[in-house]
Computed example of a mutant assay.
Amino acid sequence: MTACEGVREFKDMISKLDQSQLQKTVSLLTSDSDYFMAVVRNKYGSRRVQTLLGLSDDVDAFLYDAILRRFLDIMTDKYASYVALRAMVVFDQVKNHVMYTHVLHYALDIACNRHGCIALNEVITDADDPLYRNRLLDVVARNALFLSNDPSGNFVVQHVLKLYDLRCTRNVAVSLRGRCVDLSFKKYGSYIVEKLLEAEESLFVVVVELLKCDVDRLMRLARSEFGNFVVAKALRVTQEMDGIDLFWDLVQKLMPLRHLLVRSHGSNIAKILETCSIELLGDQN
C-alpha cells in the first residue's frame, strides 16, 4: 500500500475485484487504526486510499469509520488530510454532516497545525452547505485574535478574509478591535490588518485605532519592517474613499513624523506625506 511503484496498477487491480473481494480488502485495510494511519500518512498510500473512496456505499462505510476514529490525526497530516478532504467530496449527506461536525469540534486544533491549517482552508472554501460554512467562519472570527497570533492559525484568518464574506470580515474586525496595532508589528499579523483595510466593513476599525494611537507608538509602527505597509495602505485606502476626512486626519497625525520616516522602513509613508505637503502648499498659493 505504501510502495512508490504501482499506484496506477493498484487502481486497475481494484477495478477487477468483485464486491465481496473489495469489501474484504478495505476491511483489512481499516480494521487496525495504526495500520490505516501508517498507510494514509504515506504519500503513495494516501493516493491509493483516495482511489477507494466512492467505489461503493459499503466501502465508504469502512473508510468513514476509519477516518472518524483518527479524525484529528488525519486532518493534521500532510498526506492523510487529502483522504479526509476527498471523503468529504464523495460521501453522502449523512456522512458529510458528521464530518463537518468533527471539523467544527476540532477547528482550532486543526487551524493551529502547519498541515491542518491548509486542510481547514480547503474545507472552508469547498463547503457546499452554507450553514456549516457560516458556522466555520464564525469559529474563525470568534477566535481571530488567538489564531492571528498563532504561526499556523494566522493563515486561516488570512484565508477567510480573502473570501470577502462581509459578515465574517466584520466579525473578525470586531474580534481584533484594539489589537490591530499590536498585530501590525508582526509579519503575518500585518497581512491580516492589511486585509481588513480592504473592506469598508472593517477598515474603520483599523484606521480609528491608528488615529487613537499615541505618537511615539505610531512612529515606531510606521518605521517598523511590517507596520509601515499597514500605515501606507491605510493612507491609500482612505485617500480613495469618497469622504476623505479619515485620510487627512491620518496625514495630520503623521506629518510631524515625516523627517523621522525618510531613512527608515517608513520611507514609503514619507513619500505620500510629501505629496500631501505639496498639495497643501499649492492650495495655499
Rank of each mutant, 00 (worst) to 15 (best):
M75K: 08
V40D: 00
L72K: 10
K253A: 09
S81A: 11
N134D: 14
D245T: 00
L68I: 15
V181F: 07
A222L: 02
D65W: 00
Q23N: 12
L183M: 05
V237P: 09
D245C: 03
D242Y: 08
K186Q: 14
L197D: 08
D77I: 07
F155H: 15
N42H: 11
A270D: 14
A61W: 01
G227P: 08
R142C: 04
L166G: 03
R223Q: 15
G282L: 10
P151K: 00
E274H: 12
R70E: 14
E122G: 01
S267N: 14
L211H: 05
R217M: 04
D12P: 03
K212C: 02
V251F: 05
S56R: 06
S264Q: 07
S31N: 12
M88S: 04
Q239T: 02
R69Y: 05
V262T: 15
I269F: 09
A87M: 10
V140D: 02
V98P: 07
T125F: 07
G153D: 07
F62Q: 12
H265K: 06
L145A: 10
V123W: 08
G227Y: 06
Q50W: 10
K162E: 15
S46Q: 09
L280R: 14
T275S: 12
V160L: 06
S31V: 04
L137R: 09
L211A: 08
N113C: 06
K95E: 13
L108H: 12
M88G: 12
C180T: 11
V39G: 02
D128A: 06
V98R: 13
L161N: 08
L260M: 14
Y164N: 14
F185R: 02
F185Y: 15
H159Y: 13
E209T: 03
E201H: 08
R170M: 01
V156G: 01
L29K: 05
R70Q: 15
L52A: 03
N228G: 10
F10P: 09
L260W: 06
E198V: 01
N96D: 06
S277H: 11
N42Y: 02
V215W: 03
A127L: 05
P130Y: 11
L161D: 10
G6F: 05
V89H: 13
M255R: 12
A66V: 00
G243V: 02
K24V: 13
Q23K: 02
G243E: 09
G6P: 05
E225I: 03
A141C: 09
M99I: 06
V181K: 02
Q252P: 11
M13E: 15
E200G: 06
R142W: 00
R177L: 09
N42R: 03
D249Q: 11
F10Q: 02
L235D: 12
V174L: 06
H265Q: 11
R179Y: 13
V139F: 00
R179E: 13
S31A: 13
V90R: 05
R177S: 09
H97D: 14
T101Q: 14
G266D: 11
V160R: 07
T25W: 06
N143C: 08
Q93Y: 08
L250F: 05
S148F: 09
A61P: 06
N171Y: 04
Y191R: 07
V230T: 15
D214W: 03
A232P: 06
E274M: 01
K271L: 12
F155N: 15
R114P: 00
I118D: 14
D216W: 03
D60A: 08
M13H: 09
Q21C: 01
Y106H: 15
N113W: 04
